[in-house]
Design a protein around this nucleic acid. Structure first.
Length: 466
RNA sequence: UGCCGCAUAGCUCAGUCGGUAGAGCAGCUGACUGUUAAUCAGCGGGUCACAGGUUCGAGUCCUGUUGCGGCAGCCA
């Protein structure tokens, strides 16, 4: 068996009367007198292959094992289909069962299951229509991201997963330690080897990264344009449809770039990646449009075609104040925008993604470049209808004295940032970048309502199954 | 972490006033010469999440626990 076989996707393109084989998993089997129809999928495309099995072609024993979930190879001939529903089908002359699936126990049915149930069988759900489409689109999106940056001369950088800096300021962190060790294989109890971080593996407290940005900045100030695309961890005890403890983040960082350039990059990025998926995952998106989110294709096409609205925080506050809406949380200059405010701006007022800039410095991170007014920073958030913040970024503070002052104003110690400050000490450059939550982008592109359903195995508070 | 909701067959759900459990789908058996979530007939299938409590009697009422979901906060 060679991996370079003909995928089901390619079988549809074969000329009638071509002899071939189809490998895959059975979705359903329908029997009539003298004939059986098998829907076969190998995940290479949305559409199943219809295999026609005439009576007597297969032994009773083999036919009996061709049930939903079974893994089978069919040998036969591509023929034009006499019935509606498919142009061609495979007329079977033989079959081999690789793995049967007991139909009384196989949990994945061909009819109605909730997303919550399918989440419990995450190892099998990929064989269904919805999750096959989700993970094909996920792969396509990842490729589109690499292509976007490659085409623009960005270098793909791998920043560390483990970091000893516990003050990146982006949320709660997971500790990484060998101080905790199992008392033994037979005894599952764990015990603490040492309480002193100096005796731990790294000689000081270490954590899983919450962002590769600071290290990304160091690479950009030498390679000019870089991006990271890797796993990110937040130990925040938040259980919502938009949060994961382990997720994937894309973080470009650009030297010789200001907030304007940053906004341009973010907008071009979203348009090109979504455009690529519209073009290359059409059948999967059509399914999402029919079964998951009726407005999906309309929305995505609209995003690709129209310019994003760009507003300053101050302008957005004025709009919210004049909206006539009654919000649960009050709107005033200096307040962080709540979900309800972001929703009003993107869904009611504008109807497409909005880029907000120049937030009050108190509600944004220390590394964002301070404006001349002394009150706001060069921050930008890209807000999307339905999912809220999809991108957060800023022009970075490149002035040593200002950055040192800001770190202290935020009550952070200077010492751990010695290397970050060195960037401003030696050959500092204006630079900017942003972070994009990959799974949030996938929610937007697929219309899936829960972030746990766009990653193969979700990690959330209380769950690390699989 | 806070507030709210849910937990009954493999799945999706109903279960009235507290009186010993029901449907559709799936599965199995059979019928049907081309089906498309096939159709038709029949059959099997239950620790009513768990632990207590009230009661002659609890799926149903009360308390606690666990799990799941929604919203909010935090964020990407």
């Amino acid at each position: 068996m060679d991996y370079r076989r003909t995928y089901v996707r390619d079988l549809f393109k074969l000329a009638p009367r071509t002899q071939t084989s189809a490998y895959g998993w059975v979705k359903t089997r329908r029997d009539s007198k003298g004939i059986s129809f098998v829907q076969l999928s190998d995940g290479s495309c949305f559409k199943d292959l219809q295999v026609v099995v005439n009576e007597g072609v297969l032994s009773a024993d083999v036919l009996r094992q061709i049930t939903t979930g079974a893994c089978v190879r069919f040998d036969g001939e591509i023929v034009e289909s006499p019935a509606a529903g498919q142009a061609v089908e495979l007329l079977a002359t033989g079959a081999e069962i690789y793995g049967a699936a007991d139909p009384e126990k196989y949990p994945l049915q061909k009819k109605g299951a909730t997303m919550e149930f399918l989440r419990e069988i995450s190892h099998l759900r990929v064989r269904g229509n919805t999750f096959g489409a989700v993970f094909r689109v996920r792969a396509q999106a990842a490729f589109a991201i690499h292509k976007f940056f490659y085409d623009r001369g960005f270098h793909y950088i791998h920043t560390p997963i483990i970091t000893a800096s516990d003050c990146e300021g982006a949320g709660a962190m997971f500790a990484v330690s060998t101080a905790l060790e199992s008392a033994g294989h037979e005894n599952p109890a764990y015990q603490l080897k040492t309480k002193d971080p100096a005796e731990d593996f790294f000689g000081k407290p270490a954590f899983l990264t919450v962002s590769g940005q600071l290290e990304g900045e160091t690479m950009a100030l030498g390679l000019t344009n870089i991006y990271t695309f890797g796993p990110t961890f937040r130990a925040e005890n938040s259980s919502t449809s938009r949060h994961l403890a382990e997720f994937w983040m894309v973080e470009p960082e650009m030297a010789f770039c200001d907030l304007e350039g940053n906004m341009n990059c973010a907008e071009e990025f979203l348009k090109e990646v979504i455009g690529h998926i519209l073009e290359n995952s059409a059948a999967d998106l059509e399914f999402f449009n029919q079964r998951i989110e009726p407005e999906l294709l309309k929305t995505l096409n609209h995003v690709v075609e129209s310019p994003f609205e760009r507003l300053t925080y101050t302008e957005a506050i004025k709009m919210l104040e004049g909206s006539g809406e009654t919000f649960e949380y009050p709107v005033f200059w200096g307040a962080d925008l709540q979900s309800e405010h972001e929703r009003w701006l993107t869904e009611v007022k504008v109807g497409r993604p909005v880029i907000l800039t120049d937030y009050p410095k108190e509600i944004k991170a220390f590394y964002m470049r301070e404006n001349e007014d002394g009150k706001t920073v060069r921050a930008m958030d890209v807000l999307a209808p339905r999912i809220g913040e999809i991108i957060g970024g800023s022009q970075r503070e490149e002035r040593l004295d200002v950055l040192e002052r800001k770190i202290q104003e935020f009550g952070l110690p200077l010492e751990p940032y010695w290397w970050y400050l060195d960037l401003r000490r030696y050959g500092s450059a204006p630079h900017a970048g942003f972070g994009l939550g990959f799974e949030r982008l996938l929610m937007y592109v697929t219309g899936m309502k829960n972030i746990r359903d766009v990653i193969p195995y979700h990690r959330t508070p209380g769950n690390a199954e699989f």
